[in-house]
Amino acid sequence: MSATLFVNLPVKDLKRSEAFFTALGLPFFAATEDMAAVMVSEQAQIMLLTEPAFAEYSRTEIADPTKTTQVILVLGMQNKAEVDEIAEKAAAAGAAPVGEASDDGFRYRRGFTDLDGHHWTALCLATPA
């Protein structure tokens, strides 16, 4: 079975979030007044929803990602250069770094929070020898 993953994220300012993800080099599939679809791959999309639109789908209160962590969104990159590139683009677009770059010989990763405080990690895995 093959499925497409849609991750829904509440955002305070949709236009600001669209500009942020555009600065990362991620294309958009579609947008309306209250949501926009960021294409991560053919099988994964990030759905940015204004907080009122997100609340229509949620059974519980929307968490404040600047105070709690429910999920860490990981972007699998091909190599260290791509990890560095997207982390640097994120910083230039206003993201805050999360920790230092980490390289344990098997994984290289850099974390950041987007403009709404959602935690992201760019990661590449070493190819086994």
Score class of each variant (00 low, 15 high):
Leu26Phe: 06
Ser58Pro: 13
Val98Pro: 00
Asp64Ser: 06
Glu18Pro: 03
Asp104Glu: 07
Ala63Met: 13
Glu100Lys: 12
Glu42Ser: 06
Ala101Ser: 14
Gly117Trp: 13
Ala93Glu: 09
Ala81Ile: 08
Glu33Ile: 07
Leu9Met: 12
Phe106Met: 06
Ala36Leu: 03
Gln70Ala: 04
Trp120Leu: 10
Phe20Lys: 00
Ile62Thr: 12
Lys12Tyr: 00
Ala122Met: 12
Ala90Asp: 11
Ser58Glu: 11
Lys12Asn: 13
Asn8Val: 05
Val7Pro: 08
Ala44Lys: 03
Glu82Lys: 10
Phe112Ser: 04
Ala93Val: 09
Met35Phe: 14
Met47Lys: 02
Leu9Gly: 03
Arg16Met: 04
Arg16Ala: 14
Glu33Gly: 12
Gln45Leu: 15
Pro65Trp: 10
Tyr108Ala: 04
Gly111Met: 15
Ala44Arg: 05
Arg107Gly: 00
Gly105Ile: 13
Leu9Ser: 00
Glu42Gln: 12
Val71Met: 10
Leu115Ala: 01
Leu115Met: 05
Tyr108Pro: 11
Val71Leu: 12
Asp116His: 11
Glu18Gly: 01
Ala122Pro: 13
Leu9Pro: 12
Gly111Phe: 14
Gly25His: 00
Phe21Gln: 03
Val7Thr: 12
Pro97Lys: 06
Pro65Ala: 01
Lys15Asn: 12
Gln70Asp: 08
Asp64Val: 10
Thr68Trp: 11
Leu24Glu: 07
Lys89Glu: 11
Arg110Asn: 02
Ala23Phe: 14
Phe20Asn: 00
Ile46Cys: 05
Ala90Pro: 13
Ala81Gln: 14
Lys15Tyr: 10
Val71Arg: 01
Phe112Val: 09
Arg110His: 08
Gly25Phe: 00
Met47Glu: 04
Ser17Cys: 14
Thr50Asn: 04
Ser41Asn: 13
Ser102Tyr: 02
Thr22His: 15
Leu75Trp: 08
Asn79Lys: 03
Ala93Phe: 14
Leu123Pro: 04
Ala91Pro: 09
Ala93Ser: 09
Glu85Cys: 07
Ala91Glu: 15
Ile86Lys: 05
Val38Pro: 09
Ala93Cys: 10
Leu26Ala: 10
Glu56Gly: 09
Gln45Ala: 07
Gln70Pro: 00
Ser41Trp: 09
Val83Gln: 03
Asp116Trp: 15
Val38Asp: 04
Ala95Val: 13
Pro97Phe: 02
Asn79Gly: 11
Thr68Ser: 08
His118Ser: 05
Thr127Gln: 12
Ala37Gln: 06
Thr121Glu: 15
Thr22Trp: 14
Tyr108Glu: 02
Glu88Phe: 01
Arg16Thr: 06
Lys89Asp: 14
Ala37Thr: 04
Arg59Trp: 15
Arg107Asp: 09
Gly117Pro: 08
His118Val: 04
Pro27Ala: 13
Glu85Met: 13
Asp13Val: 05
Asn8Tyr: 15
Ala96Gln: 15
Val40Glu: 03
Gly117Tyr: 14
Ala30Cys: 05
Leu24Phe: 02
Ala126Met: 11
Asp34Glu: 06
Glu51Gly: 01
Ala53Phe: 14
Asp104Ser: 03
Val74Thr: 13
Lys12Ser: 15
Phe106Gln: 08
Ala91Gly: 06
